[in-house]
Nucleic acid binder design. Structure first.
Length: 511
RNA sequence: GGAGCGUUCGACUAAGGGUUAGGUCACCUCCCUUUCACGGAGGUAAUACGGGUUCGAAUCCCGUACGCUCUACCA
């Protein structure tokens, strides 16, 4: 007993990492760290036809960005290396052979075409007790025939014999007791014709070899649990089997069904953790990272999708999650993904993050938008002014670009609605006043003084300051948004402000 | 079709025999704000259905409906 907790995430490197996958990682990680255990990354690349170059590196990069780095992996190694199943190919055959020797499995020589035909011929065909004998395998054929086929290097697979009417049950850490009748599942392939194991064999063998104590995976795996239980029973003993937990699915926001990459494209939000480009199709898929999410926020929102600590608390740091996490509080039912709530989590994390740190995170977005940031300190200051109105890191561009360069698009329509001659005169005089201040060396007056000055001038012109604020703001930022106007002027400095007013006045007089 | 799993406001969820069924997102109203936000105060809104058990059921039991997952030499 008391063996160290060891959990694993075992993805196949076939593309970008879906947030469902990230959450599986997260729950594994939280459970391991909560119990002072190890989190292992194992790459399940047994299907060479689906192998995608770069996908494995992408997975590791994603885990690193999320702060969920494995204790053992193909990259960092560990006592149970190798961590790629393709490099462990030689290990599996032995167990398949053992199963055959013990009468729990058999050779099957049917070609894919044979199977295809059979499936077309018989509706709901199952390779099981009912049809085993009609197929070409070491149960239906004589020993000599089988030996001849093997001697001639006839391609074969190894299939497990699913027993008749045996009830298999296990205690799922989330769902409680779950049971299956073995008659309802077919004779799954264990070893493929190319010598690679299928998931079923590989997961059992590797979990055993890597001393995995707890195995968590998506709910979609539940129906194949009986196969795995049987394998544990035959190979290593049920008492050594890890404890299973089948995690609820992340569902589409509206309709029903598992959240997919397509839903993101259709509804305009990311589904992958980071940008992914399929090297074959060159298809680009946006990620949460590039959309402007903080990893803390992604982790936080994923943790709360199907789990809570029993209180009203919703904002958790990774350390708090580790401290509070328990499988007992994980939901059984799937959760629909809500992008609005996801953005709320990110906004909360933006508020929690200090301005210096935000500046380094936001800088790449400015670079991408080709907005030059000459002084890092200035960016920090701008961030302080606008962070309350940003949900995504990208919002720091839309909410802040005018601090770095004058807006080119001016919402003149909104100004024109109530534009009059005396306002024109007012702003003309304002620019003159600013010019004079600049000449006097007062280039960056404080916001409060600017406001006093502005209001005094408005009074002189017999205009309510309120009637001037909106046009003024639009001249400075281009539209109806942003922090206080006088704070903006203080930041961008008088000369710039003056030029923006003049530019707008020119636009207005042309209309 | 079969098997398994699931079902509380539009969404995420709390309450696990006794609550006016609570919170958060979204939505609406108001306050603050001479913009947009942020912040503050309110509001709309839910126990799938039908039977039991019980003084009392969202909660326990049975059935029904609906949904999802799986049903590959993919994971």
């Amino acid at each position: 007993m008391d063996s160290k907790v060891r959990v694993r995430f075992a993805p196949s490197p076939t593309g970008g990492l879906h947030i469902g996958g990230v959450r599986t990682v997260l729950f594994n990680y939280l459970f391991a760290k909560h119990h002072g255990g190890d989190f292992i990354l194992r790459i399940e690349d047994t299907d060479q036809s689906r192998f995608v170059p770069g996908a494995e590196q992408y997975i590791m990069d994603t885990l690193a960005w999320c702060g969920l780095s494995p204790d053992e992996s193909p990259a960092v190694g560990g006592d149970y290396a190798p961590y790629r199943q393709s490099e462990r190919k030689h290990l599996y055959k032995k167990y398949a052979d053992q199963l055959i020797a013990d009468g729990y499995a058999y050779y099957a020589f049917d070609t894919p075409a044979d199977l295809e035909n059979k499936r077309n011929e018989i509706p709901n065909f199952q390779y099981n007790k009912a049809h085993r004998n009609e197929m070409k395998n070491s149960i239906s054929l004589s020993e000599n025939e089988v030996n001849d086929l093997l001697k001639n290097n006839t391609p074969y697979v190894v299939r497990i014999i699913m027993p008749e009417q045996e009830t298999l049950s296990f205690n799922d850490l989330i769902r409680g007791e779950v049971s299956f009748d073995t008659s309802t599942v077919d004779d799954k392939v264990l070893l493929k014709a190319d010598g690679m194991p299928t998931y079923h064999l590989a997961v059992v063998v590797d979990d055993h070899l890597m001393k995995i104590t707890h195995a968590f995976r998506g709910e979609e795996w539940l129906p194949s649990a009986p196969v795995h239980i049987l394998l544990w029973k035959y190979l290593f003993g049920l008492n050594h089997m890890p404890q299973w937990a089948h995690l609820p699915l992340i569902l589409k926001p509206e309709g029903h069904g598992k959240l997919s990459k397509r839903d993101g494209e259709r509804l305009g939000f990311p589904v992958f953790a980071m940008d992914w480009m399929d090297p074959n199709t060159k298809e680009q898929t946006i990620g949460f990272k590039e959309r402007g999410f903080l990893p803390e926020a992604l982790i936080n929102l994923l943790a709360l999708l199907g789990w809570n600590d029993g209180t009203d608390k919703e904002i958790f740091s990774i350390d708090e999650l580790i401290a509070q996490f328990s499988l007992a509080r994980v939901h059984k039912g799937g959760a629909k993904f809500d992008y609005e709530k996801a953005k709320w989590f990110n906004q909360e994390w933006i508020k929690k993050t200090d301005n210096d740190q935000l500046a380094t995170l936001v800088k790449p977005f400015y670079d991408d938008a080709q907005i030059e940031v000459h002084e890092p300190a200035y960016l920090v200051k701008v961030i302080g002014l606008i962070k309350d109105r940003c949900h995504l890191l990208y919002d720091f561009i839309t909410q802040g670009s005018f601090f770095f360069k004058a807006p080119t698009e001016i919402d003149t329509a909104s100004i024109l609605a109530k534009w009059e001659e005396k306002k024109q005169a007012f702003f003309t005089e304002l620019t003159a006043a600013y010019a004079e201040m600049i000449t006097n060396g007062d280039t960056q007056p404080v916001a409060a003084d600017l406001e006093i000055h502005f209001k005094a001038l408005a009074t002189t012109h017999e205009i309510k300051p309120g009637d001037l604020m909106l046009p003024f703001r639009i001249m400075l930022v281009g539209g109806k948004f942003g922090p206080g106007v006088f704070e903006i002027i203080q930041a961008i400095e008088l000369k710039d402000a003056k030029e923006r007013i003049e530019y707008s006045l020119k636009l207005l007089s042309n209309k």
